[in-house]
Simulated assay, not measured.
Amino acid sequence: MQNTEPAERQWYLAAKALSSSLTSEEQMEWEAFTRNEKFRHDFEQLKKHWNVATTLPYADINKEADWEIVLGKIKAKKPTKQNFSIGKIWRVAAVITGFIALSIIAWNVGFKRNGQAIATMIQAPKGARTHVVLPDSSSVWLNAESKISFDQHFGKDNRDITLEGEAFFDVEKEAVPFQIHTADFDIEVLGTAFNVKAYHNDDVLSTTLIRGSLRISKENSSGTVDQVVLKPNEKVVLRGTPQERLAQSFALEKNIDGQAEADWKDGWLTVRGESLQDLCKKIERLYNVTVRFEDESLKSYHYTGRIQQLSLEQVLNALALTSPVMFNVNEKEVTLRLNKSTQSKYQ
């Protein structure tokens, strides 16, 4: 059970009730909350709006009206070479207040002009994650600062999606191929579950297959096409800057824990031998902050471990407990500096 403030807990459970994902323990807690007449009334009003919105065709969604109603009801809160293990973070986290964030989904719809197709965009902003069911009944989980877009023919003439960022897909099998286009590569699949990490400015892009099969292809700067067919628990990786990736070929990794690659959609923050510099990119997206290094040497520290649904302060405290890191948070800026008094413990 999350140790959030009562009001925040109410709306956290409200979101799960609307998506029919309450556990048996949460169901009992939810029933207790709904005995409050005022809260029950507010929830019923929100539920009416939710039910109406889910029956609208994509082109009829009123983004501004939806946004105002949801924000009026839910108080959204931010989600909250040496190697170091952060496995012991759980022992610390057990006595620290828990934290959960409510994801916000942003819809942007472009109407037909000059004969061009209608485009729908679904976005998870910084500090949020979201889940959506597409017109063909496929499910997509979007990580922070990610978005997908598709046209009005999706599910009929095509199943083409453009992705920026990271997403987990659980695709319904149909005769029409499901295709994902990123700035660096394309993916084609008939029915499968897989994770795609394609933040264009990151130095490492990847696609991991959970089940089924899929084909990934990219055109190199030389004009040749690099193509890989993935089997379950295999992963392709593309490294380098956006410019360097034009000449790079896919690297294939086998015997991957596919489920672990996508555990972010279940609220986990996972790192596997990642540098503090790369970890901070995740932190910036998850908590909508900017991280500044006062000491450049900190960027080379590496971490392994996984923690769930912690606030920004708790994650930073975990880093401070397992490496010589000190931090300061000033609104949306985090400053990291070397803790010289503990540095010798990690050399």
Rank of each mutant, 00 (worst) to 15 (best):
D266M: 08
P324E: 03
N317A: 10
N330I: 03
K235L: 04
D66H: 13
Y58M: 13
V334K: 07
I100R: 15
V315C: 01
T270V: 11
D263F: 08
N317D: 14
L310Y: 02
T55A: 12
R239K: 15
E29V: 08
T322I: 12
K38A: 13
W90A: 10
Q309M: 00
I74W: 07
E284L: 09
L279K: 05
L336H: 00
V204F: 13
F169I: 12
V133D: 07
L214A: 14
N220A: 08
W107E: 06
E166R: 11
Y12S: 03
L276C: 06
A65F: 10
E331A: 14
S222C: 09
K16Q: 13
S217F: 14
N108Y: 10
L246E: 11
K254Y: 12
K299M: 09
T162A: 08
K231P: 01
A144D: 00
R91Q: 10
F33W: 09
K282S: 13
R113K: 14
D186Y: 11
V140P: 08
Q227T: 13
F111H: 12
A262H: 05
A128C: 05
L276P: 06
N339M: 04
Q27G: 08
K73F: 14
D42A: 06
S138C: 08
E294C: 04
A167Q: 02
S103K: 13
I283F: 05
Q347R: 10
Y303E: 01
E219N: 07
V325R: 03
T192F: 06
F293P: 06
D151L: 08
L102R: 01
L316Y: 06
A320I: 10
A32I: 09
A93T: 09
V291C: 12
K16H: 06
V52K: 08
S213F: 14
I118W: 01
A106P: 03
W50V: 11
S137Y: 15
V225N: 04
V229T: 15
Y303W: 14
D295M: 05
G165E: 04
R113M: 07
G110I: 09
R40A: 11
V52D: 02
Q45N: 09
F327T: 01
Q10K: 08
W11N: 02
L209N: 05
T4V: 14
Q2W: 09
H131G: 00
K16N: 07
A128L: 00
T304Q: 06
W30T: 09
I61T: 12
W268I: 07
K77G: 01
K235V: 04
V236T: 12
H200F: 11
Q347K: 07
K112S: 09
K81A: 15
N108C: 07
A17E: 05
D184Q: 10
E333R: 12
A32P: 00
E29H: 00
G240V: 05
K218M: 06
Y12T: 13
L71R: 13
L13Y: 11
N220V: 09
R113C: 01
Q152S: 15
I100L: 00
A119Y: 14
A175M: 04
R215W: 08
E37Y: 11
M326H: 04
